[in-house]
Design a binder for these strands. Sequence first.
DNA 1: GCGTCTTATATTCAGGTCGAGTATAACCGG
DNA 2: CCGGTTATACTCGACCTGAATATAAGACGC
Lengths: 319, 319
Amino acid sequence: MDDHAKGIRKGTGVSNANDIKADLIAVVVAVNDHEPRVLTIGRANALPSGPFELGHRSLQSGLRSWVEEQTGQPLGYIEQLYTFADRDRVGTGQRVISISYLALTREEEATQSDRRRWERWYDYFPWEDHRSGTPSILSKVLRPRLLKWADSAGDNETRRERRQRSAVAFGFDDGTWNEELTLQRYELLYEAAMVGEATGGQSSAARSVAGESMIADHRRILATGIARLRSKIKYRPVVFELMPPVFSLLQLQRTVEALAGRLLHKPNFRRLIEQQELVEQTGETTADTGGRPAKLYRFRHAVLDERAVAGTKLPLTRA
Amino acid sequence: MDDHAKGIRKGTGVSNANDIKADLIAVVVAVNDHEPRVLTIGRANALPSGPFELGHRSLQSGLRSWVEEQTGQPLGYIEQLYTFADRDRVGTGQRVISISYLALTREEEATQSDRRRWERWYDYFPWEDHRSGTPSILSKVLRPRLLKWADSAGDNETRRERRQRSAVAFGFDDGTWNEELTLQRYELLYEAAMVGEATGGQSSAARSVAGESMIADHRRILATGIARLRSKIKYRPVVFELMPPVFSLLQLQRTVEALAGRLLHKPNFRRLIEQQELVEQTGETTADTGGRPAKLYRFRHAVLDERAVAGTKLPLTRA
DNA sequence: GCGTCTTATATTCAGGTCGAGTATAACCGG
DNA sequence: CCGGTTATACTCGACCTGAATATAAGACGC
């Protein structure tokens, strides 16, 4: 298609001291068995990633080829997350820019293999899953240790500010849990040296209380992806990227709940989905659910053309 | 503060064929005299930009120093827009990554100088300003030419799809104008070769109908910044970054209207601002407005701590 | 100094959205 | 055929939001 890329001759680039490298990093998400999962390579607790190269037609296609090479997983929906520059790595004097992406893929394609592992989100972030009530780790471990950290500050103003930030991010004072603050919460725990990455990984105590660690800043990138996805499902119909072609409304609800980490009000969820005309009936039903057979639906791809913004605004409620 | 940065020795970096350059590009916005403006360098119709260098502590600080060096303008609020990779530029065989940012600054600091110019948004995007009704250019020029472009497609499906996209982005069919679709609209006009950048700048006719051009893809980046800002003022209190320390509620409303490119319902705007407790009275009034003196307000910086998400959801209405 | 103009500020009303609860329908397994 | 289980339908009230109207306070001309 594009003869431009072929014309690149390796090594003709003029390099100088300001040249840098760019890494592409992917947060690939699927929902399996009511559990949101992230794609990792091997047992290294690392996200798939690789350098942006001359042969790549674009950043996105570079990302796709790295993920496919490392894990065999083809990617569908992709969106950019964030670009940041690391401090120079281990004294090479060269900077590395990391460009991170969020990718969504379907359950059926998300099979295990020796090259890839699908790890549960909430193994890395145990405090983020509120589907069976507020996790006890919040009040029993995180809250006291965050308070201790706040009070260990030198001046009064810092103490007040740390308590304030913790209370807002974790909903300590008013009991209000905002599922979109995943990144802020992780950053607080990092600052307070309560996650493995911040303590150099030597503290197994920290690791057990504050979830599984990942290499480098990959867990922070995962937190960014989770936060973005939790926010986006409320105003764009991206959930359907994670669904099989045909599904029941309860399956859809369970998927949204898995991502948001909280339960939803069933009648309101149905009302919202139906009145937005995001789905249409297939005419078939399934009896797999135990009770009355559920009607099956499929996503109306047409809405992507019809409307610029098709919200899925999920009702943010308890059950 | 940070001894890490000092440790970088120039020239020790190992360069190879996959090394690249990274450009930092800034969309700096201020609102002056009820007109949203963007900072450009000289009369070149170019956004301030420069390469990310080893000496830069971070991407953001690199951006700040480039903008300040090129325009003398110090930056306050900054947020990342998007990162993209150009096709290789003029056969050097080297790729360039562009990292774009949106910056907001205050009116008083936005004075002209010989190095910088504050250009009006709507000189580049005349069809985006709906404050005095729907611009006639929409129905008189853009709509017929977009339809012609749609019908010039080879197959039926492409024609249908082009008409559909145009209608949604510009609100042709239902008259619904969505001010957040600035980028989609620009991209459509680009595809239809109705903007100067797409025709190599030789067509002065295209230039006069579809706004002032900019170099390279800077106008597209500006469109991205406008879209982001128009979206963000609805759920984050970023408008105040553009306001003087003390202001009346009507001044605030006029600023929001300038950004959104549409008029708002006055009583509802006041109600929303007040009930969200975003501002507090200074106790003073101003008689500069001609009628009854207006109370003056200031932004309550405390809300940034108190709440994680402080919405400014502006009522999207006509006057 | 008084009426009029202009803008600021306050109040009211109706339709829609949203959280929450309750009722009915359909299939299964014994 | 009856209780258990899940699906689907309907209802209610609080609150949000678009829209219009009413009142207050200064400026200005005569």
